[in-house]
Design a protein around this nucleic acid. Structure first.
Lengths: 204, 204
DNA sequence: ACCTGAACACCGTTCAAGT
DNA sequence: ACCTGAACACCGTTCAAGT
């Protein structure tokens, strides 16, 4: 039976999850879908276009339903969803980083973040800039968190041996990523709060 | 005459600057150095090892001299240096992201950030976590900022046409990266200040 | 419309053998 | 010690031709 665009997308995502971004190959994907590698080019202009479609797909749930509550909670929810979306596949954050998408899911996620900050009281331009600051923190954190590497653990252990200060650094890398993410996110949110002035808790 | 490790490193960096990360190839590098691709493996265990050496090299200046002044200025200086180091080569931020280095330059940069925050009054564990939050913001920002892509401008222009709210978002992407970086960095620093309590301005 | 077969111009890595 | 030559097992992409 014939392959649909959605099948290729699903296959690519499964291959990504199984092999990582460097393991995604048009030939392997073809094999998984019982098709020659060249045949995939009927469905997608290029490998890059396929990866961008996977990236857009990955962000599907991020802003599908708008987060509710006070502005800080809404923003934290959105940031969580973004991280979770990227954690949804192996190398998801790297995929997002190496891709430039202007499709609905991606755009809506950005707009939603911006709107939350406008509702909180920021002028539109500041809201957009602030939204990107949050997004960049989330992206940077999640990329690092997903970076696998076989010798990572070994290097880290060796590093921890070299001194007490370096030990503290190594411990931070090895710490629970979820809690570390939360910590940094709260920091950024506090920074935003400063810009809103003192009468924020009363707003919705 | 013979090739030294440093020559390979310099060649790799120049090739990276000229062709981008995806254009760095053992064969092209060999050609640039008048050597067969296989010959490079005498100097470096693998392409990955070579890239990690380039990454470590890139961070040479970041913490070479410790930033001076009040803690917030010291931290901002360090963040600037980190961004500038990554901007020093094409795809520098992506290189740092795809690499896990525990060599002196990289480690010292991390330790310096942590020490600045300890001096500011944070307990060591918080200082380490905070340092990573800053680093992740810088990394995320600089990756996005360096993402080239030929159709980027076209996609962005098309996006700006689709509505006034999206226009604001597109404008933020197209804005001066230096100013945008500054804005987000100040946000993070304000967030840190909140955690230090009210008696900070008096400290050095 | 959707895919095959085959080719083109590449990759990273290994390793005997040369100097 | 440092590198060549040649091979191995791969890549993304194109495109005539098939169905």
């Amino acid at each position: 039976m014939q392959l649909r665009r959605a099948d290729v997308l699903r296959g690519a995502r499964e291959l990504l999850d199984a092999e990582g971004l460097d393991g995604v190959t048009m030939r392997k994907l073809g094999a998984a879908l019982n098709v020659q590698a060249g045949g995939l080019y009927w469905h997608f202009r290029s490998k890059q276009a396929l990866l961008e479609a996977v990236a857009e797909d990955l962000l599907a749930g991020v802003a599908a339903s708008p987060p509710a509550g006070p502005w800080d909670q809404r923003l934290v929810t959105l940031a969580h969803r973004l991280r979770q979306a990227m954690l949804g596949v192996r190398d998801g954050a790297r995929l997002i980083a190496e891709t430039f998408v202007t499709e609905p899911n991606t755009t809506l996620a950005g707009l939603t973040g911006m709107q939350i900050l406008i509702d909180a009281g920021l002028p539109p331009e500041q809201a957009a800039w602030t939204m990107f600051a949050v997004a960049h923190y989330v992206l940077g954190h999640t990329i690092e968190e997903q970076a696998a590497g076989p010798d990572r653990a070994a290097k880290l252990a060796a590093l921890a041996e070299t001194g007490p200060d370096v030990r503290e650094l190594a411990a931070a890398i090895a710490a629970d990523p979820g809690r570390r993410f939360e910590f940094g996110l709260a920091l950024v949110v506090d920074g935003i709060r400063v810009r809103l002035g003192p009468r924020t808790p009363a707003d919705s």
